[in-house]
Design a protein around this nucleic acid. Structure first.
Lengths: 191, 191
DNA sequence: GATCGCCTTGGGCATATGCCCAAATCATAC
DNA sequence: GTATGATTTGGGCATATGCCCAAGGCGATC
């Protein structure tokens, strides 16, 4: 089976559709991304969408989980590379400062949370990714000598991160750096 | 100006539309609520929607902010009635246990967060309500002897609550009670 | 009974949507 | 040159959408 060059081009336009979807969901909302809009953004004819994907929803799920998987994997990798918990929390808050709460990445994540309540397929995939993230963070916490249930602390940390993201969307003036105090206290630091 | 009875009936059907919208947004998503669906749920003809509201979006904003205002007001009232911070945090977690994360109230709140990024009018109103909630909680924290910046702690608490809500939607097995440990630690309790 | 205000009805218009499909395209293999 | 295999095209269909509007109640006032 020779590596068909037409097939290769096909994979590339498929990727362009995925990229377009990732960009459009934050702009228009999960339900606002339509066949024609995503095709136009990707620079292809409308029919291509249903050639590469069974439905618009399928495209959105593939695009969303592809994005979230990458983000969570990289974030877990960088966090667990920190030498101690305090340093990790500080790094995490630094990262959060880059996310305004109304940036595309944050919005896409929240859109996926919501859509997953109506799409079992998405829910299963995203839930698995988050569980993986939590377990990696929990191992890191335990290795770095966290006193208490590391699984619970990791869940609380992940929830806090997303909560902060959510609230920054409404109040851009929220001072991220200041939140370090309570967050560090949560892990028994600064005593 | 006599209290016109026809006008009174009008206000009642207007309220039925608001109630229907509050029920439908969690079921179908913000963008999934259409003129005809909300009219049918309210038991009125489709035309009524655009008689009482300038647009479907207007209806959704009015319904959403009406709901969130009530929830936040009541929650702030009950929380700040607690005698000390530890008791308040425990009560809050108890409340959260009632919200599954996929219950209508939680979903409506998150839908509003997202929609507010695309609707300045909604954003302004919802942002104001959250700010009010935070300032009430901050006063309560300060009065109860919280050591540190009460405004920051209130913001972190509110964010944590919403983050927990978000994560429960994906992982119903998340043990709320266990989160009390890190949360209490955040306020310097249990030392 | 006639008049007046407000609410309600149900249909209609222009537009947008998801998905489909016969025909066109195009680089390669023969 | 022609056949092959895929991708791509652009239009089309049935349906759904937001918003509008002329006509119809319906109770209160005269």
């Amino acid at each position: 089976m020779a590596p068909n060059p037409a097939a290769a081009r096909g994979q590339e336009t498929r990727q362009r559709l995925l990229d377009a979807a990732v960009a459009l969901v934050p702009e228009l909302g999960w339900g606002g991304v339509t066949t024609r809009v995503v095709a136009e953004r990707a620079g292809v004819a409308p029919g291509v969408v249903h050639y590469h994907f069974a439905s618009v929803t399928d495209l959105l799920i593939a695009a969303g989980t592809g994005f979230s998987g990458g983000v969570l994997d990289q974030m877990a990798g960088e966090l667990t590379a920190r030498a101690d918990i305090g340093e990790g929390v500080d790094w995490l808050l630094g990262e959060l400062a880059c996310y305004s709460g109304v940036d595309p990445a944050s919005l896409l994540m929240v859109e996926m949370f919501l859509a997953s309540t109506r799409l079992p397929g998405l829910r299963e995939r995203l839930g698995g990714q988050i569980a993986g993230f939590r377990s990696r963070v929990a191992s890191w916490l335990a290795e770095r000598g966290y006193q208490g249930d590391a699984e619970v602390a990791a869940a609380m940390l992940a929830a806090a991160v997303d909560g902060i993201m959510l609230h920054r969307a409404l109040d851009p003036g929220l001072d991220i750096a200041a939140l370090a105090g309570p967050l560090r206290a949560m892990f028994g630091l600064d005593r």
